[in-house]
C-alpha cells in the first residue's frame, strides 16, 4: 500500500515530559486520518513533528517519501498544507492580497485565487479587509490559503474549534470534496462529531500513546454491548442480543405492533474514548 505518512516508534520529549511515546502509525494515500484526544494529549506535538516544526526524540518518520531531515525543505513545504487553530492572516490586507502572497510564495497562478474563493464561498468578499471579517469567514480564508497550492497532504490542527455549527458544516463539506479529489488529510481534533463525520480512521491519543486506532464505526462497534434496545408502547424496555438466532424475536415484536422505538446501544466516539482512557474528551 502507498503510505503518505509512515511513523515507527516515534517518541518526543520536552525535558522530562514525554509528549509522544513509541507511536507507530501508517496513513495511506487518500485517507482522512483523525487524531482524537483532549487538550494536552500530544496532538499538536504530533502534527508539528510531522510538519518539521519539531524534532523527534527517537523513532523514524517518513512523510511523502521524505525522511525527517527533508521536512524543512521548500520542496516538502510546497507539497503540504498546514492549518491550525492559531493560524493567522494579515489583518490590514484584503482577502485577495493575503492569497496573492501565498500564490507568489508557492509559485501558483493568480487565477487560482478566484477558483479557491468560489470553493469556500467568499468570491464576493475578496476585496474586504481581513480585520472586518467574522471568525468563520477568516477560517474559510485560511482554509483557502492552505488549499490554493493543491497540497498532496493537508495537516489540520483543530480546524473548527470555536466555530459555529454552520461554519463547521461548510468547512467539513470542503474537506470532503478535497479528499474526494485525492488529498490525504491528517486531522487533530477533540471534537468526536468531527472525527466521526470526517475520518476514515481515528487514533485515540491519550498521554502521548495511541490507545486504539480504527474506522470510527468499528471503534464504536467494538465497544458496544452488542444489544438492541426495544422500547414498547406500554413502557417496557427489552434488551435483545444482536445475534442471527434472535432475529425471529425482533420480527415478532415488530409484527405485534408493540414497538415504539428500537435502537442499538453503540457508543459515541466520546464514550469509547472515556471507556478506553478513563478521561472525558471535553475535559
Amino acid at each position: 500500500m502507498d503510505y503518505v505518512i509512515n511513523i515507527n516508534n516515534l517518541s518526543k520529549s520536552y525535558g522530562n515530559t514525554q509528549a509522544l511515546k513509541d507511536i507507530t502509525l501508517q496513513v495511506p494515500k487518500g485517507q482522512i486520518f483523525g487524531l482524537l484526544g483532549p487538550s494536552g494529549s500530544g496532538k499538536t506535538t504530533m502534527i508539528k513533528t510531522l510538519t518539521g516544526e519539531l524534532k523527534k526524540t527517537s523513532g523514524e518518520i517518513q512523510v511523502l517519501n521524505m525522511d525527517e531531515d527533508q521536512l524543512s525543505t521548500p520542496n516538502y513545504k510546497a507539497k503540504i498544507g498546514v492549518l491550525s487553530d492559531n493560524s493567522a492572516l494579515y489583518e490590514r490586507l484584503s482577502i485577495y492580497d493575503n492569497l496573492k502572497l501565498t500564490c507568489k510564495l508557492y509559485d501558483v497562478s493568480l487565477n487560482e485565487i478566484d477558483t479557491i474563493l468560489e470553493k469556500v464561498n467568499l468570491i464576493d468578499d475578496k476585496k474586504k479587509v481581513v480585520s472586518k471579517l467574522s471568525k468563520g469567514m477568516k477560517q474559510r480564508v485560511m482554509l483557502a490559503r492552505t488549499l490554493i497550492h493543491k497540497p498532496d497532504l493537508l495537516f489540520l490542527d483543530e480546524p473548527t474549534s470555536a466555530l459555529d455549527p454552520g461554519n463547521v458544516d461548510k468547512i467539513h463539506q470542503i474537506l470532503r470534496e478535497l479528499n474526494e479529489e485525492g488529498t490525504t488529510i491528517f486531522l487533530s481534533t477533540h471534537n468526536m462529531e468531527e472525527a466521526t463525520n470526517l475520518c476514515n480512521c481515528v487514533g485515540l491519543l491519550y498521554k502521548g500513546i495511541i490507545q486504539e486506532m480504527d474506522h470510527p464505526d468499528n471503534l464504536r462497534y467494538q465497544h458496544s454491548t452488542n444489544q438492541f434496545e426495544v422500547e414498547t408502547h406500554d413502557g417496557e424496555l427489552i434488551k435483545i442480543e444482536n445475534k442471527p438466532e434472535n432475529s425471529g424475536q425482533i420480527e415478532q415484536l415488530i409484527a405485534s405492533g408493540r414497538v415504539k422505538r428500537m435502537y442499538t446501544d453503540d457508543p459515541t466516539l466520546g464514550e469509547v474514548f472515556l471507556k478506553v482512557t478513563g478521561k472525558d474528551l471535553g475535559s
Binding site: 516544526e53 513545504k77 492572516l89 494579515y90 510564495l105
Partner: peptide
C-alpha cells in the same frame, strides 16, 4: 503569521 510564512516554501 510568521509561523505561516515559515511553513511556506
Amino acid at each position: 503569521t510568521l509561523r505561516t510564512l515559515m511553513m511556506s516554501p
